[in-house]
Design a protein around this nucleic acid. Sequence first.
DNA 1: ACTAAAACATTACGCGCGTAAACATTTCAT
DNA 2: ATGAAATGTTTACGCGCGTAATGTTTTAGT
Lengths: 343, 343
Amino acid sequence: MAGRKIRNMEEFAEVSGISRPTVSKYFHDPSSVRKSTRARIEEALERYDYRPNIFAMNQNRRLTKNIGIVVPYLADPFFAEIARNLERRCIDAGFFPLLFSSHGEQTQENAILDSLRLLKPAGVLLAALGRTSDHDHIKRFCADVPTVLFDSYLDNTGAAFVGSDHAQVLRMIVDYLCRSGEPPVFFEMKNPANPNANRRRAGYIAAMEALGQTPEIVRVDGTGWSFEQIGFNGASALLETGAFATDTVLCSNDRLAIGLISAAYAKGVRVGRGPDCALRVAGMDDHPFAQFTCPPMTTIAQDYAAIADNSVETLFKVVETGALTGERPEMLFEGRLVMRDSA
Amino acid sequence: MAGRKIRNMEEFAEVSGISRPTVSKYFHDPSSVRKSTRARIEEALERYDYRPNIFAMNQNRRLTKNIGIVVPYLADPFFAEIARNLERRCIDAGFFPLLFSSHGEQTQENAILDSLRLLKPAGVLLAALGRTSDHDHIKRFCADVPTVLFDSYLDNTGAAFVGSDHAQVLRMIVDYLCRSGEPPVFFEMKNPANPNANRRRAGYIAAMEALGQTPEIVRVDGTGWSFEQIGFNGASALLETGAFATDTVLCSNDRLAIGLISAAYAKGVRVGRGPDCALRVAGMDDHPFAQFTCPPMTTIAQDYAAIADNSVETLFKVVETGALTGERPEMLFEGRLVMRDSA
DNA sequence: ACTAAAACATTACGCGCGTAAACATTTCAT
DNA sequence: ATGAAATGTTTACGCGCGTAATGTTTTAGT
């Protein structure tokens, strides 16, 4: 580990006894050089910890080893968890993931995409803001950079989409709720930021009608990403006026449900499925904290691992084939019913 | 915005009618060129959206505009929230923040620091893992790169430390709990990952003794970062054996408290400060979800904004003066008692 | 209006590495 | 052993920009 200090690839090539172009080739892909050559380089690598200069490398490479990961709101543990899975897989594949959060703001999202362009990423994994996104801006970006959209669906944008099968998910939870008690009322925000909300509503309506039930939708005011607060405020008002048509509420996502459960507790409305309970509450996503609500939340778990795996895998495929046009696969994964005590 | 496409600074200099070295100077610092020159450049900038190549810029600049932000566990909303504040301030100051999460693993933390070296960052904001950190590795990093530590204290490492004044915080919450009911038992993990836990325990003991009370500490098993689960499991066992010395529990952090409250609910133990309640529970941090527990959690809010502001500001000061040695300021901020219903 | 100072233009080199071309050597099947 | 294929070496250029040196123009102070 001692010896002279290595300043650049030239010097490293010298001490390893291999020519610089071959060393360069090695760093680009170790398996592209003869085994004996690789051994000599790796031996030198142990003696002289040298690593190529990223900036010089990326300047000349048409595309880098960078992978951009963009999520709409990192303070939401759901996205933090997905991001963690994505990061891991990128690193394992020898890429360098760069994580960005739009913090719920369009200007941020646009700025991130602009910066990302300069970083010449091999590809980008993007969960867009949704309704508040600058759709044209994103589309233009996707035209230049291989991008896989996940979680948040945008029409006709990106090289592929990976997300949840909301129709299936809603069918499952609505089915469960109807079998085990009164049919659910659907609880959501009036102007949901996330486009998934629309698919979930549609899924709810379809599932209810398939069972011969009448869909009932309750929509509460509020903008932004403070879903718990919005759910809390909305539910507080509704619980006073008794505006829920049945004793069962299906929330558009877990964070709204967290707010609702908190509001019910404050009002002394007992949530759960026991005989002494007045309200059943179900959520969607299996948020990391859903199992610690009081009572623990019945919800639908999204398949984090599958979504992460397939997003990354699909992106790599697109990157390799350079297929920016052509068919645009949409992969939808089923959810898993997590029966806890709230419904 | 139309016209020919600009490929590099040379061409941009041409269409703006300014020499390339001057244009380069402009991008380095717009105020370093004459007003009329700046106007001409900015006019061209509007017509030809050009932005300098990051990699070429950073290759020759000794230090870049990159700021590394490293947190131990991004899926913890506390760190997500702090990271958000730090990011914002870096961007406002014209820097380019790069966010990394160690995901609770030493190998990751070390790998992040190694990568960060290659990115030649102007500075780094680091919340280390703590007990599980590779202290020497971090120290070596801090010797080369201007680094401000925050939240997680490490002896004699980094150019400065910014965090919470745990002694003050504990004095305040212990004082409140003793005034309003029975003195608190301290609830924590047996082998806390975060060094703050030790300071909090010490603060608790000091605060209790100052009030003439006997400190009582309950420590539960569990490793890793699933604090809610650890709190839940530990509390479930304790509530059955009735091992809490008083009816008041002060948790080392909000996430443990979330688990404890959930466990109490499951056992039918009513949490709160009313006459019909059997247990008071207080947390620490004012976690984003603390206000939605059942009942809402009494806790101490850390001053996110102050910590973020001062971390960034201190880092910039260090970067400007290049002061890697000399005094090593430690800034501790007071917490704010948030009285809700759990205690 | 005149001069010193500030700002800009011109020219030129370097950063560290990618990569192509031409040639030399090693490997491997026959 | 022998020739083709695979792999290395040498040499040379380019990427886009930072930056120093030198000379010219503009600005500002009196």
